[in-house]
Design a protein around this nucleic acid. Sequence first.
DNA 1: GTGGTCTAGACCACA
DNA 2: GTGGTCTAGACCACG
Lengths: 127, 127, 127, 127
Amino acid sequence: MPDEFQSSKPIYMQIVDKITVDIVRGKQKIGDKLPSVREMAVQMGVNPNTVQRTYSELERMGIVETKRGQGTFVVENEDLLSEVRGSLQNKIIQNFVEKMEEMGVTKQEMMAYLKQYLEEDSYDNPN
Amino acid sequence: MPDEFQSSKPIYMQIVDKITVDIVRGKQKIGDKLPSVREMAVQMGVNPNTVQRTYSELERMGIVETKRGQGTFVVENEDLLSEVRGSLQNKIIQNFVEKMEEMGVTKQEMMAYLKQYLEEDSYDNPN
Amino acid sequence: MPDEFQSSKPIYMQIVDKITVDIVRGKQKIGDKLPSVREMAVQMGVNPNTVQRTYSELERMGIVETKRGQGTFVVENEDLLSEVRGSLQNKIIQNFVEKMEEMGVTKQEMMAYLKQYLEEDSYDNPN
Amino acid sequence: MPDEFQSSKPIYMQIVDKITVDIVRGKQKIGDKLPSVREMAVQMGVNPNTVQRTYSELERMGIVETKRGQGTFVVENEDLLSEVRGSLQNKIIQNFVEKMEEMGVTKQEMMAYLKQYLEEDSYDNPN
DNA sequence: GTGGTCTAGACCACA
DNA sequence: GTGGTCTAGACCACG
């Protein structure tokens, strides 16, 4: 099995992921204006073109819309955002299960280990 | 020069991870001889130097030992392997929890979502 | 410096086209007074200078005439307007045929496709 | 009605259109390799990045696929290409009908004018 | 000021 | 050699 070593995700996609999470978990609210391309470029320490590409991708995904000469805004469509949120969570769970199965862990064990981990964690950080 | 963006893990480390998993989950048993550097290089489709670095790293981690003129063998130390196995699993769980928390998911929800996912999955793939 | 790519037609020419169509299809009748340069500029959301150039061009084309102190009027020459109308229609047809030929569509097919399109369209919008 | 003047389509989209037509009408056959990004850039008198963007868009549209280190190829899916062809033709027809209607031409007249135009054209260029 | 496009030139992983 | 990403710096149309 030659040839399947992951090269790092492109920067503009890493930013896409970051912003998507921010939007989906409500850190950026519906209708909010995102920082301008140039601002965001400075914040991220990246070239404006890279951010531009990020914003294009976000628009293509439909979770952001741009108004000419005004800026880029979180789309006002709660349903879409919910859907994206669900899909992201599912991907995380799926990844987790796959990796655990690869380690030879059964489903019952996964549940047990997770429960244990969360309970230990709760002494410092009760929830 | 942005620096907060992850570049891909070096290939030799990706192979380290892969072999570690193979050993820890018993695909490579205690005392087994690993393929020679050249063989492994062919199998992985990479340069022998890369495999050499991989084996060095595995030896440094203590889960493999080289016998001059004979080859590279999985170390005969069940306790160590157990420890490594536990540590790997913990890392996977930790990563999962962090990502879910980043999405604003509470611990209760994590358990519920995972349970649901595993149950859905079981129709085709009962375990 | 690539040069074979169309840059957008100047705005004043786009307005020329628009007004020409309005006149030729009778939305602006023979002898009608066009809005003043300032009015039209507001209507179109452009600079008055731009409209000025538009009116000059329309006058050069002969389909409009300016009377000092009174305004700009559609020329009272039905024949000329007919001619312009025919020429515009011909340009549209020509453009259509060229594009279809570029797609490798034969003349018979053009007729057939157009007929089909118009008939489908007629369920909602009979004419 | 201020504000609807067409700015020229971006160069990379003009190239997209051009290549799409070439593919769809069979000038570029199924499985054919497109010129490399750099070659095409020279041919078109354009920056390689612009062509790169064109190729990305073509891939996004699904009518082209790229093989790492090998090149960009026309996708081997006759059905998809047929569909695209139909859609392009429809767009041309639709544009034609809209413009003619804007000129106050009825459907019957469109058919008649087109027929007449095609027949006149046939003296030089019989088909 | 905003987003969008384009060029020039560079570096990367891949085959 | 191929496609893909990134930077730097420029210009545009828009509100």
